[in-house]
């Protein structure tokens, strides 16, 4: 570690690994982008007419999201929004809401 170049390389390597590591709260953060309409942690306001997502089985939510995304399920806004997320992100979101009671 006495060689300055070696130190630099190590620092750059650590920094880039650091920067690429997925956030442990990634699913929570992604799911929070749904909360404006579907309620904090998927608990929509009762009587608001918008579907709650909390506690919905992951497979059910994910199928619905996939159907919106690939155009098999009609909707006003959800087909447009789901196309902005990767399949992996939709899976994380569905899994997160399934754990919310």
């Amino acid at each position: 570690m006495k060689h300055p170049a070696a130190l630099l390389t190590l620092t750059v390597l650590t920094t880039s690994l650091f920067a690429q590591a997925a956030d442990p709260e990634r699913a929570r953060n992604l799911a929070a982008t749904c909360a404006n309409c579907h309620g904090t942690n998927g608990r929509a306001v009762a009587g608001s007419g918008i579907d709650p997502l909390a506690g919905i089985d992951k497979r059910v939510s994910l199928q619905k999201l996939a159907d919106f995304k690939n155009g098999q399920r009609p909707g006003t806004i959800m087909p447009q929004i789901t196309r902005g997320y990767s399949d992996e992100q939709l899976e994380l979101i569905a899994a997160y809401f399934a754990t919310q009671k």
């Binding site: 650091f18 920067a19 956030d23 709260e25 990634r26 953060n29 982008t33 404006n36 929004i81 902005g84």
Partner: peptide, 9 residues
């Protein structure tokens, strides 16, 4: 460090 891949909608 903060989440390296944030999403906004």
């Amino acid at each position: 460090p903060p989440d390296p891949a944030p999403v906004l909608m």
